[in-house]
């Protein structure tokens, strides 16, 4: 079996918030371990504030972890300086959520897509670089004449394709995608997902696909990790997770999904309280309909069960 192209082990990150008069720390990522295999997609699902975007920035080493270890392939990168990271960055690239904000409006498409080559393959001739950019643009379905045009001349979906070309031109082994389609129309979303699936098949790239849209996970991923309050609470093969969630939070997320057909409409579900996560014991306990006394006392450990794991004292059947 091949080695993971991205691995996080026990990673933690806290941020300070507020000014000098009321300094408090927020534990954005409390303890996250995950791995992405070549050619495979791990979906990371959670609500806003769950820490999933912080995980993305840690995985890319745009942030340094407070604790824990991060590997890109065989290479451990948790403690490396910005300078030491620079030559390695080509292996781990990123696609952002907002295609309007992620491209410099004053940079021509050709420059934006070829920027990585300038840094990582400085020996390339101008003509060679232009050829590589044109080939990459064609691969993502952008016409060749885009080279000398500016981002504002393209639609949201086209810009997201350009963002993907920019990330892939260095042939990375891992792509971190942070809500790459949530700003797009449904039809354009389907186009981008189809493109990402094709590129993965052809190049064997590993994807860490971050989303709040659990339904989308079925299309993109083989495995899914569910995050709550800075921790992964359940990780499982997609089909197993949809068929029988073990963690009550996963169950709640699945119950919250809109119906696929008017016949499958559920009458009003019991509204879980919007209580903040607990500091002690299981963080989900204040919102959990199945919580008991022991849940409030101690953080549940991970239980491994075949290909899945979950952190819950009283898992669902």
């Amino acid at each position: 079996m091949s080695a993971p192209v991205l691995r996080l082990e026990g990673v933690r990150k806290a941020f300070r918030q507020g000014g000098w008069w009321q300094r408090r720390t927020v534990q954005a990522v409390a303890d996250v371990s995950l791995s992405v295999m070549p050619g495979e997609t791990l979906a990371l699902v959670g609500e806003s504030g769950s820490g999933k975007s912080t995980v993305a920035r840690l995985a890319l080493r745009l942030l340094a972890p407070d604790a824990g270890r991060i590997w890109w392939g065989e290479r451990e990168v948790s403690g490396l300086s910005a300078r030491a990271l620079r030559p390695l960055r080509r292996h781990v690239q990123m696609v952002f959520q907002d295609p309007y904000a992620s491209l410099n409006p004053r940079m021509r498409i050709g420059e934006a897509v070829g920027e990585g080559l300038l840094i990582h393959e400085p020996g390339l001739s101008r003509a060679e670089r232009r050829r590589r950019v044109a080939a990459m643009l064609e691969e993502v379905g952008i016409p060749a004449d885009a080279h000398d045009r500016y981002p504002h001349e393209f639609s949201g979906g086209q810009r997201q394709r350009i963002g993907i070309a920019r990330a892939l031109i260095l042939r990375p082994r891992v792509l971190v995608l942070d809500e790459p389609t949530s700003a797009l129309d449904v039809s354009v979303q389907a186009q981008i997902i189809a493109l990402l699936l094709r590129l993965q098949r052809e190049h064997g790239i590993g994807y860490l696909f971050i989303t709040h849209d659990l339904a989308l996970v079925r299309w993109v991923a083989a495995r899914v990790a569910v995050m709550f309050a800075g921790r992964i609470v359940e990780e499982a093969p997609v089909e197993a997770l949809f068929a029988a969630p073990r963690h009550p939070y996963t169950e709640a997320l699945l119950l919250a999904q809109p119906a696929a057909h008017p016949r499958a409409r559920r009458e009003e579900t019991v509204p879980a309280a919007e209580a903040p996560p607990a500091d002690q014991g299981c963080p989900f306990a204040p919102r959990c309909p199945h919580a008991r006394e022991d849940c409030r006392r101690q953080m549940p450990p991970f239980i491994e069960e075949g290909a899945r794991r979950f952190a819950c004292w009283h898992p669902r059947p």
Binding site: S155, G157, D185, V186, S187, V188, Q189, A190, Q191, I193, A194, L197, A215, L216, V217, R218, W219, Q257, P258, A259, A260, H261, P262
Partner: peptide, 29 residues
């Protein structure tokens, strides 16, 4: 949901995981 007749309705339904097993995108925009 059961019997969409217009090709656009069918195409929109094929754009979401809830109603389609794989993404079948509508070309263009």
């Amino acid at each position: 949901f059961d019997d969409p007749r217009h090709p656009y309705t069918k195409a929109l339904l094929a754009c979401r995981p809830e109603t389609s097993a794989e993404p079948i995108p509508i070309p263009g925009q």
